[in-house]
Each structure stands twice: as structure tokens, then as C-alpha cells.
Design a protein around this nucleic acid. Structure first.
Lengths: 282, 282
DNA sequence: ACCAGGGAAAATGTCGACACTATACGTCGC
DNA sequence: GCGACGTATAGTGTCGACATTTTCCCTGGT
């Protein structure tokens, strides 16, 4: 799967969450989807400015719809809009990642049980088909294809929970971590593990085993988090890699640097007393 | 506690979620908080129009900040903003209520374990104090005071999870159901049960018993949901009251009427193909 | 009587403009 | 040379206006 196709998939994913089934998509939706997809695809790096003037020029509109679009993306956690300051692409702290993964894990565990109990055989069959797509993608070593099949899998999985509220929350949390995917997919061995987990999960669904399904989803997620902690912790100097399972959500380990993002370009202006984290001490 | 004091508490609660620690609160925040509090206090009933012209007149501003404020409230689920149509106060379907309660229950269960494990004794002490306030309020049969103490309790409880992500989600879900509170508090016996649950929960926290804490929070929540189902189901005619625990999130029981809301005033205009649910058949 | 249709009134989405604030750059002092 | 200060630039929040769409009311047909 090439970059263009991946971008198309990203667009669709963002649209599914942002443009609430609007037909035709409003101007605001279009802008939000496009910018959101660019963030997901890492065409815009964490910390990048998203000033409304430039965006309004690019889309040949006024700033009003651009501002609304940025607010939409802020709602999904992809963008940060500090008052009176320029909006930026959200920078995920390692603590944020931990919180998101742990929260998502709890919710997935919750819905897994329901899916195992109440999904029809036909629905489980559709999950199986997506599982097969994931398998083919892995066999072809096409990690982008794997990722998007994985996204499809979870989208259907949340849909099968028949709980729109929780679906929206989980999808939003997933979107927030999509820009990090290159980390999770950086080792073929990890992808292989993930694939196994998903195939096993399907089996659990087939066998109507709620407990196993919940445990598998949880395990898969916590593993993914632990891997990310390893990568991100390694990036932040001396912070040791500590297994997260059972640990506090907010460890006292202070993350030195924004996750996988270059430190923001040096700011010339007098820094105001902002919500900026601890200053980097070079 | 009188209506004015309750309103002040509602304002603070909405502000805690909506105005993201802004100081001073922006114009948009102020509007959002005030309108949000009015919704929570039922000064604006579900289904009521919230047209931006009227609001902008009331706050002596232009429509732009009003529109942003309404979008903020939509983010929290208090307001629905259909494209090209007037924003309205959200109408909670019985299915929505079920989804919200079940989701919140899952998240509370998740954090309860963490709180039991990692909260300091001082923090548990603060919870205890709030528990005592709840007790006094109940003793005085002041149900408004009880409710707000309860809100405080949960606010601190989520804070102690040390997980801002999940705190924001739970708080938002709580806000959405706050307008329904008069239903939950409609029987002294129920309030008494709720109080007992909370006191017991505190005890579980003190004893560092994660499993009991999680179970108590879950039980308390599912009971509250079951009560609501009884009330709301009764309101919608033949829909039988079915226990929800273990059942599907989205039962096939169709709710006839918006929850505890008068059916919208008859609409004269040609109804467009909208997202309106099943039409009321008088 | 009731439902459909037409047109007036009103609300929405978007625009360009303005005041105010944050940022970036040049200049000064050391 | 490096770092702090002040000014020019650029961006944000808000406004009032306009085109388009929805909503409301009234009339006419069956």
C-alpha cells in the first residue's frame, strides 16, 4: 500500500469520526478531515503550527470555518488550541500515551465481553474476513495495509458493541495514537504478535468466550503500550523501561521530551507563563 | 440548598469541564458555562431551541462566540447541533442513558482499582470528608446538596485516578446525565442506598481493596441505571422494565418518547429527511 | 375538516474588517 | 561575540453583513 492509498484511508478514518454522517460534507468537515488526515499521516509533525490564516489561504475560505475545523480536531485530541496562541498539532507526552492506552484497554475489555455474547455469527464472520486481510498484509510485509486492516477490525469491533457512546470514545482514542503507529509497527515480530492476538480474539468470539475475548484485547493493548514505553522511554534518556501492567497510570517518571517529536523550534519571543511542561535543559 | 446555590454549583461543574483552566475565562467559556448550567439545571428543557441570534442578543455579543460555545457544549453532549438547523438541547433517549451508564460504569470500575491501590491516605481522607457531607445532606433531606456532594465525590474520585484522559471522559459522561438527576433522586430510599454504597466504597478504599471498590462502584451505577430504566420505561408505555446487568447495551425495546421531556412542540414546516427518530404518532 | 404548497420571516454558514495580542526581528548594551 | 529590550509583523478573537436555507404561517385544493 503506497502513501496515497494510506492517505485515503486516513481521510476516511478521520471522516468517520469528525463529519458526523453529513451528506454532503460541509466545508468545515472537509477541512477538518484533510488536516486531520495529514496529522495522522505525519505530514504535519507534532508541535507544528496550524495557524488559521495559512489554512484559510490554502482552502480559499475565510478563517471562520478553519477555526471551527481546528476546534473539531481539538475535540478528537489531534490538535491543541491554546487561547490567543496559534493552534498546534498535539504533542503526545509519554504520560498521555499511557493514559490513552490504559483507558482504551479498559473500554475494549468492556465491549469485548458484549461482542462475544451478542454479535451474530454473520458479524463474527465479517471480523474473520478482516482478520484474513490482516494476515495477508502481514504475509506481504505491507505494514501500512496491516495497520489499516487493523483499524477496520477495531472499527467493526466497536460497532458490534452496539454502544455508540463507547464506540465514539474508543474511536477517538484510537485516532489520537494513530500518528504513533510507525513506532508500534517498527518490528515485524511485534506485528506478528498483534496478528496472533487478533486471530485468537476472533476464535474467542466464535466460541462465545467473553472472558477470553476481554483478556486477549487487554493483553494485546497492554503489550503494545509496553513496547511504546520502551521506545519512548529510551528516547527520553535515563527513564527506565518499567512494565505498566498494574502500575499507576501516571508514573512519577518525568518524560523529558515530547513523544517522538523533535523539540519545538526555539522560541524567540519572551515565553509567557504558559502550560508548557518542564523546560528542556540542554 | 436553594435553586440559586444549586445553579452556582452547576456553573462550577460545567466550567471545570468546558473552560479548560482558562484564566480569565474567555467570552466563549462564559457563554458555554452559563448555557450549560442552565441545561443542567433544567432551565432549558431537552429539545429546546438554542438559536444563536437570541443567545447573541442575550450576551450582547456577535454570533461567532455563541456558535463556538454551542460547539463546546455539543462536545460534552449537552447540545445537538444539526447542520443548517437550529441547535437544540440534547434529548437523551433511553438507549443513550443506558449506553452512558454502562460506559461510565466500566470506566469507574477501571479507575476504582487504581484509586484503591495508589491514593494516599490523605486523599482517601478527603473522600471521607465528602462522604460525610453527603451524609449530612441526606440527614437533612436536602437532595440538591446531596447531589452536589455526590458530584464532588466523583470529581475527586476521578482526579485520584491520576489519569486526566479518563477523568475527562467520565466527567463528561456525568455531565450529560446530570439533567436527569431529579429522577435518580426522586425516592429517598434510593438516595439512602446510594449513600450507603459510597460510604462502603470509602471503606474499601481505606482497606485498599481494589476488587471491592470496583464492584461497589459498578453495583451502585448499575442500580442507578436500573432505576432510571424503570422510570423511563414506564414513561414510554408498554416497554417493560428489564434488568440491564448482563444484557445487551442496545436493547431492541424502542423508546417512544424522549426521556422525561415533553414531545417537541408540533412542527409545522415540512419535515425534511432528518435524523429524527421514529415519528411520534399521537 | 385536513393535507399540500407558496411565500414571508428568521436563522444559519461564511465572509472581510478591525482591535488587540503574541511572535519575530533588529538594535542596543555588555 | 552573546543576551536583553523594543519595535514591526503576523495571528487571534470578535464583529456586522450577506447569500442561502430552514422555518413558519397563510392560503387553496380535495
Amino acid at each position: 500500500m503506497d502513501a496515497a492509498e494510506s492517505m485515503r484511508r486516513a481521510l476516511a478514518s478521520v471522516a468517520a469520526i469528525v463529519s458526523n454522517g453529513e451528506q454532503p460534507p460541509s466545508l468545515v468537515s472537509r477541512i477538518a478531515c484533510e488536516v486531520g488526515a495529514e496529522i495522522v499521516e505525519r505530514l504535519r509533525a507534532p508541535g507544528d503550527d496550524l495557524n488559521s490564516v495559512e489554512l484559510s489561504r490554502r482552502y480559499a475560505t475565510s478563517r471562520t470555518p478553519v477555526r471551527e475545523a481546528l476546534m473539531l480536531l481539538e475535540k478528537e485530541g489531534l490538535v491543541t488550541v491554546p487561547p490567543r496562541r496559534r493552534p498546534r498539532v498535539s504533542v503526545l507526552d509519554i504520560r498521555d500515551v499511557r493514559e490513552i492506552y490504559r483507558t482504551r484497554s479498559a473500554l475494549l475489555e468492556f465491549i469485548a465481553a458484549d461482542v462475544a455474547r451478542f454479535a451474530t455469527d454473520e458479524e463474527v464472520g465479517r471480523l474473520t474476513m478482516i482478520g484474513e486481510r490482516m494476515g495477508s498484509a502481514f504475509a506481504a510485509q505491507d505494514f501500512n495495509a496491516y495497520l489499516w486492516a487493523n483499524v477496520d477490525f477495531h472499527d467493526l469491533n466497536t460497532l458490534l458493541s452496539r454502544n455508540r457512546t463507547v464506540k465514539r470514545i474508543i474511536d477517538s482514542l484510537l485516532l489520537r495514537t494513530l500518528p504513533l503507529r510507525r513506532l508500534s509497527l517498527s518490528r515485524a515480530e511485534w506485528v506478528s504478535n498483534s496478528l496472533d492476538d487478533h486471530l485468537y480474539l476472533i476464535k474467542a468470539y466464535r466460541n462465545r468466550d467473553p472472558n477470553l475475548a476481554a483478556a486477549l484485547l487487554r493483553s494485546n493493548h497492554i503489550q503494545a503500550l509496553n513496547r511504546l514505553e520502551g521506545l519512548l522511554g529510551a528516547g527520553s534518556g535515563a527513564a527506565a523501561w518499567v512494565p505498566c501492567e498494574g502500575g499507576p497510570n501516571l508514573s512519577t517518571v518525568t518524560a523529558r521530551h515530547p513523544v517522538a517529536a523533535p523539540p519545538p523550534r526555539e522560541r524567540r519571543g519572551r515565553p509567557r507563563a504558559g502550560t508548557e511542561g518542564e523546560g528542556a535543559t540542554p
